[in-house]
Design a protein around this nucleic acid. Structure first.
Lengths: 413, 413
DNA sequence: GGGATTACTTTCCCAGATCAAGTTTTTGTC
DNA sequence: GACAAAAACTTGATCTGGGAAAGTAATCCC
């Protein structure tokens, strides 16, 4: 954050305020584990720089006795943040506030996966987003955006800003963050798209304040990203949350991964469309068409959708049994097709979730494509709220160390 | 640890030394992320109290130039630690050193799951373990054991020392740690048995120094415990790692949990025995009998074992795809039955692990029952190596806070 | 106005690190 | 055999974030 030294305490408070809305200093102390004094101290620079502000004493308080508390609120408009999601043929960008709420959006086609070209399009899109904000006279409370989050499907090394492998773009080891930073002058983060979504949920959404939750996306593929004890699971080899290739039915349809009966081979958009074609005998039906047919009483079409939901339910139960998350958010384009899929998934989940794991809440929530870009912005925000560690800049030695060091330190707790 | 104030730095170093063996101060600095100065300082009280010692300069060093380094080694014999595993009918106890390596063991029957009686047996077993050490003249370098770890299957709240639910003992909300502490005067920890095993692996075993790994046990049940980014996954509702009820084959045998085709319904000891009985027509065959038959060319018996291995392979692939651990250790009594199960599991795993998740190493390792008790001891050791936080004793307010506070603080990173 | 009660501030202090400049112990070279 | 070079460790000054506890502020109630 500009002009500001984010201490660990301040970072905690910012995250709390983003997640909970306004909180009094006393409440902040309670939730953060800091003392009141520490909260006062940590808040001062944030107030000075305009990252938070005091609200009027809340009028409708219950206990009338004692000094009324002063709610502190994050000034989400203090800084703008950009988020861009790359698909195989489009770059979708949003300009958001510090809570990763979308203020406006724009979109550019990606003519080819050629790296310099993509970087150029991203830079152009960033400029468009910023200029449009200016031209539309959107009130600017604080700084023009200096941060840009990128979301890409595939294997991403967030700490290095490296796209290790992207099947859609056919990239390997592209240092995307550096390239885009050089082209735009912004501070750039890159993260896997599903993990970005989880970041958004962690920051202000369904995961705010939860120990552990999961985000599952259904659409062209089946994605999953897991937050355990507040940490996003990364996977030792870059793979984690590969829920799409969980085998739910050994006798199920063949999957492109070589296995049989993967969730993705039953519940991805393409798989449902394929099933619809063979079940109804009509080619070229979309999932929405199928939903419409099902609503009109077509049992075969309905069957295709409930089969998909059923597979998803099994997958959700597997996640719940292994992790015991408090909540699973299911989202993505695949949810636009009405209630059949969620209903079937819920039912199957209840049957297969073991013991108390069944208490895990399922939240089905359709999401526009923009949501992916907002996720990208959330990663950038999260980066802004991270404690600025003085030592990071001190020497290469420390940077080299930090990887293993962090791991060891965490292991101790 | 007695007479000693474990600072965070010291805790990190102890964990490193337990995992890596001897390391020079410089290496410790590199691995811990501390500066050399901090290492020197943190090591001093540990040296003074005899928890670590300096070794002679290593002779076979390569670069001959410069001052040779002094390796520091954990003095594992500085303290004894007790570990006891409770099954439905037996208490198995071990006395170990600070690396949770077994020095000797003892065992007592548990006539009933009656709580006071169990507590009594545990106390007696602890006394026996300590006395036998004395009577056998085992050299005592340091302190007599003051820590006891307990391992129980089921849902355990380690921070409160509470057995929330144990199906085998038919317990609910038993404050076991407090009861045993009162009966023995020892500092007592309680943890789920499979998680205890993971602690041992994390401390000195296959998981030492790994970001993420999993321990899967096969035997009477199928257990699993996950370490992600150095943290043991707990599960929001006490359930996590319920691998046993992952559905691997919807058309598979019915499971006692009400579902069909769970891993446990195919690969637990009872399930294999059941399958053997129906496949061979002979009642009362044990898994070992089945393995012998298979070795003698009985295809039906072999089939039962490979089916079990196959189910386990699917389960392992699910774990690898979801978490991307660096390694999965498969252990437990179920591995005593020869190579058929591991072979089948490996094969299935390779087919179903997605992309780089297949690089996850599988380690199959039979384990004596004592291993469970050693795991319990590892939890006690881990507790000894934890930073002693001064504030914990300060007030109830802080304790009440700490739960949510910790969560928020971690979320920030 | 004077408690009672709650919210927040201030001050002082301390543990645990870092930083940077030593010191020690070795090898290699002239 | 003195001396540079190199690596491993020590030392001490200093910084930083946060804790403890006493002080101040704002409100209600009598």
């Amino acid at each position: 954050m500009r002009n500001i030294q984010v201490t660990p305490g301040a970072a905690t408070l910012l995250a709390l305020l983003a997640a909970h809305g306004a909180l009094s200093r006393t409440d902040l102390a309670k939730h953060s584990g800091l003392t009141q004094g520490a909260v006062t101290k940590a808040l001062r620079p944030l107030l000075d720089e305009g990252y938070v502000h005091e609200l009027a004493t809340e009028p409708g308080r219950v206990r009338a006795v004692g000094r009324p508390s002063t709610p502190i609120e994050l000034r989400a408009d203090r800084e703008d943040v950009l988020g861009i999601k790359l698909t195989d043929d489009t770059a979708i960008g949003v300009l958001t506030d510090l809570r990763a709420e979308v203020r406006h959006s724009a979109e550019l086609p990606l003519p080819s996966p050629d790296v310099p070209e993509v970087v150029g399009v991203v830079a152009r899109l960033a400029r468009i987003l910023l200029e449009r904000r200016d031209s539309e006279g959107i009130p600017v409370a604080g700084d023009r955006a200096r941060r840009l989050g990128l979301a890409v499907s595939g294997d991403v090394d967030r700490t290095r800003g490296l796209v290790r492998y992207s099947p859609f773009l056919r990239w390997r080891d592209v240092p995307l963050a550096d390239l885009v930073a050089a082209a735009t002058g912004l501070s750039v983060t890159v993260e896997n798209d599903v993990k970005s979504l989880a970041c958004k949920e962690l920051l202000t959404g369904a995961g705010a304040g939860l120990r552990s939750f999961a985000v599952v996306t259904i659409g062209a593929g089946i994605g999953c990203s897991l937050v355990v004890e507040g940490t996003l699971v990364a996977g030792a080899f870059g793979v984690a949350g590969e829920l799409g290739h969980l085998v739910v039915d050994r006798a199920g349809p063949a999957c492109h991964c070589g296995s049989r009966g993967c969730v993705e081979a039953t519940a991805s958009t393409a798989a449902i469309e394929h099933a619809l074609a063979s079940a109804t005998g009509t080619q070229g039906l979309s999932v929405l068409d199928g939903a419409r047919l099902a609503a009109d009483g077509d049992e075969a079409a309905a069957r295709c959708l409930t089969d998909a939901g059923d597979a998803i339910g099994t997958a959700l139960a597997a996640v719940a049994n292994l992790f015991g998350p408090q909540r699973i958010v299911v989202t993505g384009e695949g949810l636009d097709a009405g209630p059949l899929i969620p209903a079937a998934a819920r039912e199957r989940f209840q049957r297969q979730a073991f013991a108390t794991a069944a208490r895990c809440e399922l939240e089905f929530r359709p999401m526009p494509l923009l949501g992916w870009a907002a996720g990208a912005a959330a990663v950038a925000v999260q980066n802004a709220f991270r404690p600025t560690n003085r030592t990071a800049s001190s020497s290469t030695v420390r940077t080299r160390r930090s990887d293993e060091a962090l791991q060891v330190r965490q292991a101790v707790q």
